[in-house]
Design a protein around this nucleic acid. Structure first.
Lengths: 123, 123
DNA sequence: AGCGTACTTTCCCTATTGGTTAATTAGTGG
DNA sequence: CCACTAATTAACCAATAGGGAAAGTACGCT
């Protein structure tokens, strides 16, 4: 929920983090990272109804994470990384906190990518 | 809302992003990046009541963003960067999208030079 | 004009979130 | 035991989020 009296940047972070706090929406983003897609294409992998996907897309769009075009009766979506860059930049603020204890963040990128056997030797 | 049938990593990202989608909680994190603090210390800058802050702290703790100790009647909070590293790592997955202008050129040049460019997404 | 495809909007429902006040637990020190 | 401080829990409320079903809109085609 957008807390009262926020700066524009804080409000944007609210929206962006909220949009990312849902695995369906993150999966849609991951799909769009491969290239633009129509709503039906985006909906295909999910068991949700089309209106549900449509709403997720609206949330992503409003958070600035995707952009939309009109081509015939299609409304193709494309990823817009500027809000993702905002998130990455926000998290980078705290890098020194985990850099003190952990080697490289690349380990976490790898842990994310093959999350099936996550090995975290520290902690 | 935690979508059904999520992997543990997805569920953790849900919780972490949701916890970060609130400027009060991000401000608490920023304060804790300066050092550990009690609940009352954390509550001081806000106009919210103590129970409200207490709930925010519980959300942060459950998301793994902070840890808590017991010292006398105080329950000091400390930042825990591992979930922040998870967020940073997640966002880094998409770095090539906002770096694309340069990355595409890099990849193209590298591909020309030794026909074996770095594989960044071979999942 | 009429039909089909591709969405979106509206209405409805339930669950969660963020906030409050009031009551309660926990620990410290007379 | 009593009082004080620190913090949580309980009960409640309004607003939001996520989902479905059904109806509506937009566009291309014949």
């Amino acid at each position: 929920m957008a807390t009262a009296n926020e700066t524009p940047v804080e409000a944007r972070l609210d929206e962006t983090f909220a949009a990312l706090a849902n695995s369906t929406r993150r999966a849609i983003l991951a799909r769009l990272a491969e290239g633009a897609a129509s709503v039906n294409e985006l909906a295909a992998p999910f068991e949700l109804t089309l209106p549900a996907i449509s709403k997720h897309i609206k949330v992503l769009e409003h958070a600035g994470l995707i952009t939309r075009a009109r081509r015939a009766q299609f409304r193709p979506c494309a990823i817009d990384a500027s809000s993702l860059a905002l998130v990455a930049g926000w998290a980078e603020q705290y890098r020194h906190i985990w850099d003190d204890r952990f080697d490289r963040m690349d380990d976490y990128v790898l842990a994310l990518q093959n999350s099936k056997h996550r090995r975290r030797d520290d902690q």
